[in-house]
Simulated assay, not measured.
Amino acid sequence: MKFVFDLDGTICFKGQPLSEGITNALESCIKNGHEIIFASARPIRDLLPVLPETMRKFSMVGGNGAFVARNGETLEVTAFEAEIVKEIQNIISAFQLPYLIDGDWDYAYTGSEAHPIYQNLDPLKLAKKVALQDLKDIVKIVLFPGEHLNEILVELKKLPISLYEHASENIVDMSPNGIDKWNGLMKLGIAEGDFIAFGNDANDASMFVKAKDSVCVGEHKVRELASLQVPSDETAVIDMLDALSEKYK
């Protein structure tokens, strides 16, 4: 069986690398004959540093589906259409919004260095921070809406994009139209009902509804789409992983 894991808030916490306990549970799952796949909102660049080196060539989906990688090689990167980028830039200008905008590897960032997202940004210094106009392709966009959240959502929902609101971090996360984690998993050749999914947020919904079993970590509304739920607690996640690993052995 294939086991697909979101990272932040699911199997890694507070931006820290996978713990020894989680890593051991994943290795035990592999020993039971299962395949491990990672599916994160992070671009591949920021996904790699939280993984043990032994797992950095596993199949993975980054940027909520915009990046797809296998065996350490990026197979596909899906960028926004130029017209959509212009529309989003107009919204940024109108509301004077800080942002994190990812190209296929480098990034542009104007947000606060105190924001948690900054702490997870290119920790291995693999990329360059550049001006927005210097990014060739725009693959993922995060806006910091502040007090203008509702107004910004009204404007963004007019656009053909994949849009996620993360209220706990007060950010709005965007990917190109039709791009989500399930879309990325399909590009890896994964079939509906052929995997177990672990996640904790709205961007995990697309894979929850296609999984054989889906585990919501915590109390997010996406739990309504999951077949199973555990508290946002590392021990509970490990226990559930061990149980499912044995069940589908």
Rank of each mutant, 00 (worst) to 15 (best):
N203Y: 07
A202F: 11
F198Y: 14
S227F: 02
G218M: 08
R223E: 09
F208I: 01
F198D: 06
S168K: 13
K187T: 04
W182T: 07
I179F: 01
A205N: 09
I196D: 06
G184A: 06
I190W: 01
A202Y: 11
I196S: 09
K157E: 15
K212A: 15
N177P: 00
W182Y: 15
N200K: 04
N170L: 14
A226P: 04
L225G: 00
I161M: 07
L188H: 03
E165G: 00
F208V: 06
N177D: 15
K221F: 12
E192F: 05
G193H: 08
K210A: 14
A197Q: 03
K158W: 04
G199D: 06
M186Y: 06
D213Q: 13
L185H: 06
L228E: 07
Y164Q: 08
Q229W: 06
S175L: 12
I171S: 04
P160V: 00
S175M: 15
W182P: 03
A197N: 00
L188V: 01
E224Y: 10
D204M: 07
G184D: 06
I161D: 00
N203Q: 12
V215R: 03
G189A: 11
Q229A: 14
N200A: 09
D194R: 07
A211E: 02
P160K: 04
E192P: 01
P176T: 05
K187C: 09
D194G: 12
I179E: 00
E192I: 11
G218D: 06
A191I: 10
F195R: 07
G184Y: 01
A191N: 13
A202K: 07
I161H: 01
F198G: 04
S162R: 02
K221Y: 11
V217H: 02
L163C: 10
V209H: 07
L225Q: 10
L156N: 05
M186T: 14
C216K: 03
M207F: 15
A167N: 12
L153C: 03
W182V: 07
N183K: 08
I190F: 01
L153K: 08
L153E: 12
L159D: 12
I171L: 07
G189S: 10
K221A: 14
L163F: 10
V154R: 12
D194I: 06
P160Q: 03
N170G: 08
H166Q: 13
M186A: 12
L163S: 09
N183S: 13
E165T: 13
L156E: 04
A167K: 13
V209T: 15
N170H: 14
M174D: 02
G193F: 07
F195W: 13
K157M: 13
E219W: 00
G178W: 08
F195C: 05
P160Y: 02
I179Y: 05
V154C: 08
L163W: 02
S206C: 12
S175W: 08
E155K: 13
D173N: 13
L185F: 12
M186D: 09
I161P: 00
F195H: 05
A226L: 04
E155Q: 14
L188P: 00
D173P: 08
V222K: 00
N203H: 11
E165N: 13
A167C: 05
L159W: 09
A197M: 04
Q229P: 01
K158S: 09
F198T: 03
A167W: 06
K221H: 11
I171Y: 02
A202N: 09
G199P: 00
S214G: 08
R223F: 01
L225Y: 12
